[in-house]
Amino acid sequence: MLGTVDRIIDSYGARQEALVQILLDIQHELRWLPRPVLERVAARLELPLNLIYNVTTFYKHFSLVPQGRHSISVCVGTACHVRGASRLLGRVSEALGIKPDETTADEKFTLKTVSCLGCCALGPVMVLDGEYMSNPNSTDIAELIEKCE
């Protein structure tokens, strides 16, 4: 794990200005930012740990908890809300056995809510690994989950 981290840091010449980019790349490979990784980044860039935490907790994109291999987002934006987002979220939640912002025990799925994906006409919208779907029912959801590795 730290090997990957070092490689990414080196690819940016361990430059302090590249902090966010480095963190993004690390998160892309590891899916989240474990504490030892943050410590390594701090040490290699010669930045204090409090600054690394400041940055990683500022941007919503960064995750300090493990993320599942697949991500499922349910839109709870206004249009989707009106069109039944909470029922959709309930179905997904039930199928996965987790609440929003949680990850399944096998680290397979992470469930998130988002606010408007810009395709309100399809609402309520669910996105599985970048694939959009309009108001899937319980059977659809079960099938989709089944298909994921």
Binding site: P48, L49, N50, Y53, N54, T57, F58
Partner: peptide
């Protein structure tokens, strides 16, 4: 703590309404 002492024991986490001050125990 950061600028005068150079110790970086305290820091901010979060943003907006959940922003808050925390202390880093190792430091």
């Amino acid at each position: 703590c950061r600028d005068v002492k150079g110790a970086n024991v305290l820091g901010f986490i979060g943003r907006g309404t959940i922003r808050q001050v925390v202390v880093f125990p190792d430091q």
